[in-house]
Design a protein around this nucleic acid. Sequence first.
RNA 1: GGAGGAGUCGCAUAGUUGGUCUAGUGCGCCCGUCUUGAAAACGGGUACGCCGCAAGGUGUCGAGAGUUCGAAUCUCUCCUCCUCCGCCA
Length: 423
Amino acid sequence: MLDIKFIRENKDLIDLGAKKKHINFDVEALVAIDDKRKEFIASIEKKRAEQNMVSERMVRTQDESEKAQMIREMKALKEAMQQEEEELKKVMHEWQVLMLAVPNIPDVSVPDGVDDKDNREVKTWGDIPKFDFTPKDHIELMQNLGMLDLERGTKVAGFRGYFLKGDGARLQFALWQFVQDFFLKKGDFTPMITPSLVRRETLMGTGYIPQGEEDLYKTQDGDYLSGTAEVALMSYYSDEVLDKKDLPIKMLGFSNAFRREAGSHGKDTKGILRVHEFFKFEQVVLCEASHAESVKYHEEINNNTEEITQALGLPYHVVANCGGDLGLGQVKKYDIEVWLPSENTYRETGSASYFHDFQTRRLNIRYRDDEGKMRFVHSLNNTALSGRPLIMIVENYQNEDGSIRIPEVLQPYMGGQKIIAKQ
RNA sequence: GGAGGAGUCGCAUAGUUGGUCUAGUGCGCCCGUCUUGAAAACGGGUACGCCGCAAGGUGUCGAGAGUUCGAAUCUCUCCUCCUCCGCCA
């Protein structure tokens, strides 16, 4: 959500931003509704002022017939007011719907483009492995080594169901511990285990609702299963006023991530590249309301995930997402994509975005600046570790005989084990 | 799941026969007086939003709806917390 005053004063910016994101949005329609809103508010408040004034007089009046006269007048005023309030309600509803649809303005550095094919590569790291044999995909490798069970996975959980098993489970545990220790060394991230069963407002606040509702699981009680710990972490401080001296607040969340993957039924149907549930570490940062600060921490959290990926020895590149590939609230986004030998291409393992005050305005997270003015903090988030790096490790570290070398940094968490091979 | 109690502007509280509550008080915090400095004492100030160029107006007492000329105060629904009972990992 953006500030209505800002929207009114920067209609052209909003318009250009929406175009860059390839989102249809009619600013003029919103402004027209807002004009109506203001009109009604002014009129209603004027009537209410009169009502308050008469009310005050009535308390001091002893004369009963004078009182009765006042009540008659106020009754009429009240009816007029109720009518206007009814209309204001309708206007407000329309206003809300439009306000929730206003896209945040993308940064100037965001490349133009329609979809992920237009994302611009900004960095590459590592050597793409050269195999002198035909590399196998993670499904074959993991099933052969008893690391993954898809048949029983679908039997138990349905389409896209899976079990990580044996060394598959152990390798995943090792990754989690490695990531925890990585951030422990950084020192300033608070580790948190967060709920993924969350209330509707949290998803509204983070911007996943109303636009992304069909990709969320919903319970019979009206709660939702979130697709990332970002939702709970962002909502953690909702409706609170933070101390400026506590900023930036850096959090490392760990949670289940649930995704319906509605609309991607045909995509990645084999294996565990795209699944309905997985565990994920997520970084969330709340900082002062300054573009420079946002940019600084955006680079920082992206760098953290790059460091993790490098430590794991996985070849990757970073892309700056183009306008059409940005979400409604995002100002800028980087995706980290790791090389997947079986597909002979890079696949996304995480994405880092910043929002300015788009999310915090919805969630009402504020602080007092040096002038004593209340301001909405800025928010950012980035994947620290999704479920995919496990797949990337398996494929990139495979040997001709189907065994898998364990990345050096993970070996301590695997009891010194260096390789996963058939017994 | 059942029974009962509670939710006030940082914190703690007052306010329940509806109308000077434009929400009082204490603590905390800020400014000032006094002081060599500090403390204490004393004086003043201290919620957030919306409309308005401004003066000013207006809203918010967990949320929403209702009764009324008028609701922090009455009614209903919901949310959250506490106590007890039941069930359970």
